[in-house]
Design a protein around this nucleic acid. Structure first.
Lengths: 227, 227
DNA sequence: TATCAAAATTAGGCTCAACTAATTCAAGTC
DNA sequence: GACTTGAATTAGTTGAGCCTAATTTTGATA
């Protein structure tokens, strides 16, 4: 239990980034590792160790030394708020201000620290409270509820199966632009035509065309059954 | 002449705030005073002295000790960019996201540090590149040009004259809400009916109604002739 | 001209959040 | 069970930007 968990002094930018990152890393089901956090935030491991200690003192994370970090209830609430901000911003910028899905991440990454909850709610309302962002990632509701569907990546879809791309879990603009150039975006239907062994490429048919995609990229394409 | 004025390392939030404040204070025609900057930013005077020194080293201001600060060409360019951001944000939030003119300042004050120039330009374009914000303040163009019209405040408009409110130079939400409740916004036509001496109140007719406004508030209403 | 108050600056200290270098811990291997 | 390796932590430093207290400068007034 925490000392200062009661008050709602505003979080610093850094704290917001850490909480969001820990939340996203924790979705794999295990506590977030110091190194992974450091890598994600482009910081050194000791910096992360230090911040984890401060977050633990504030009651936002539980930390067992050498065993990784987990968010507390309060930490998760704040992290989900950041995720909502990010995804609502992405959705709004694409829908209303002509952004492409590849450039929008960077802009949202900065704005998420500056917007009020009221603005986010207005943006969401202006779009009719969408359930997913342009990458297909689910948008948490204002009261912190978020759907947690697990979709298999394209690399696990059997040869011969038709599937619909539901989420594209990549932030890198270059990759996203490339995927878009192949028509591989959420909502696209693809049929798996072939796959080479040993983490080899997957070949899919997209409409009239056929594309061969490396294992790494194909892992970022999360698919669901066609409805 | 400055040491590091060449590079364009990103400015910190603080530096952005100082530059904008110095710019706005300088519009009175004199160098900005340390105390005025401190008051405006709600900081202590020594903090401001310290920052001024750093800004001078970066070539963003010229500082003669005990004589106030002035922006350099580069400092002014950056300050005007912040002013543009702020005013475009205000215009956009009011026009597209249902904000009232009294609440919009605070939101813009935070967002102006997080937006990219590209986003500001898209917002401005979405509104048809407006020339003024919801308070009637001129919006600098993307290349840094800004109209510098001087309007007389309502307290200087002669009795019997009809005038149009052009700008309302107040940020405080309470005052703005009050003024709005009297219909006193940019574009409103008023006729000065009476004025008491010794900084006394001014009485104006607004449409069918008559209102009496204290000197301080009437000073924030900048007027032009009816066209 | 001497004095005095207000404005500005200098001096010294604090917190946050980053860093590098050095150390400790965990876990698998021989 | 000892060794090794990679992950994590501790130790110590730095810089930005804020603070209060003390000092200096300016400029107006007696």
């Amino acid at each position: 239990m925490a000392a200062a968990a009661l008050g709602q002094e505003p979080l610093t930018r850094s704290v917001e980034d850490y909480l969001k990152t820990i939340y996203l890393l924790s979705q794999r089901g295990e506590p977030a590792a110091t190194n992974d956090i450091a890598h994600q935030l482009e910081l050194s491991a000791p910096s992360v160790s230090g911040m984890i200690k401060r977050l633990a003192e504030q009651g936002l994370v539980e930390h067992e030394p050498y065993k990784g970090v987990e968010l507390t209830r309060e930490g998760r609430r704040l992290a989900i708020r950041m995720v909502r901000r990010h995804r609502v911003l992405e959705a709004y910028l694409v829908a209303r201000l002509g952004y492409d899905w590849d450039g929008v991440h960077e802009e949202a990454e900065r704005l998420e620290h500056a917007v009020s909850d009221a603005l986010i709610n207005r943006m969401a309302a202006a779009l009719g409270d969408p359930q997913v962002d342009p990458h297909g990632d689910p948008i948490p509701t204002a009261d912190g509820w978020v759907e947690d569907l697990v979709f298999p990546p394209l690399v696990e879809v059997s040869i011969g199966t038709e599937a619909e791309i539901r989420r594209v879990s990549a932030d890198d603009p270059e990759r996203l632009r490339y995927l878009a150039s192949l028509g591989l975006k959420p909502g696209t239907r693809v049929t798996v035509v072939d796959r080479q062994p040993f983490r080899g490429p997957t070949t899919v048919r997209v409409g009239e065309q056929t594309h061969t995609i490396g294992h790494e990229l194909a892992s970022t394409l999360l698919c669901g059954p066609t409805l």
